[in-house]
Write a protein that binds this DNA or RNA. Structure first.
Lengths: 108, 108
DNA sequence: CGATTTAGCTTTGCAACGCTAGGTATGCAA
DNA sequence: TTGCATACCTAGCGTTGCAAAGCTAAATCG
């Protein structure tokens, strides 16, 4: 599932997944898979450009980390602006979802 | 609201709005506005191309109707394939929405 | 009657975005 | 040494919602 449905909601997913942690791209992919109950299994070509986009927009900050044994990772965390945006997007999602629910007559 | 969120869900909205009725484009726009509780106020440039797309895909059928007084309207109704697709899309939406809910930690 | 508003349909072209597909590089186990 | 998992990056494609513009016909109002 999840063909093109994600459009416009990926940013919220990323921001929420990172939350108060500091995660690198690969870990984010796994976290999304886990936390969505297997609903979302997003490819790298989706995640990495999106992270760059969010960093450019000032919602994420990144730094390179060299763990003991293992290769360098780029680790992302929310900026203040990102935290604010997450709150907005959560509300936006709920408003949107209730609108769709009404029209589809689902979850009434 | 609803900047680009609708991407990938418009077809379901249209199919569900038409349902067992036979509606023309303008009426569909108003019906969506009404049934969504004002959440969605979609412009014509969104609706009409989408209707054509769905007709081309065989999910909708259209015919021209000349009402007593008033100008000609193009009236759409679901085909069998469209009805089947609606069922799938409803399920798809619920699956998708519950995935997002899980990740966002909303509506838990 | 003329002017404006509302209903009703169409089309062109843009911008955004998720994804496919390809590539690079590192560490570890068989 | 082969292979796999980890980890990152990017060019380019296809879809899609939307803004903008235009057209026609009915209704409303001065």
């Amino acid at each position: 599932m999840s063909a093109e449905m994600l459009k416009g909601h990926l940013d919220a997913v990323l921001l929420a997944t990172i939350g108060d942690d500091a995660l690198h791209g690969y870990a984010i992919i796994e976290a999304i898979r886990a936390r969505s109950g297997g609903h979302f299994d997003l490819p790298e070509g989706t995640i990495y450009p999106a992270l760059h986009r969010l960093e450019l927009a000032g919602l994420l900050a990144s730094r390179w980390v060299q763990p003991d044994g293992g290769r360098k990772r780029r680790v992302y965390s929310l900026t203040d602006s990102g935290r604010r945006s997450l709150v907005e997007r959560r509300a936006g999602w709920q408003s949107f979802a209730s609108g769709i629910d009404l029209v589809l007559g689902a979850r009434t």
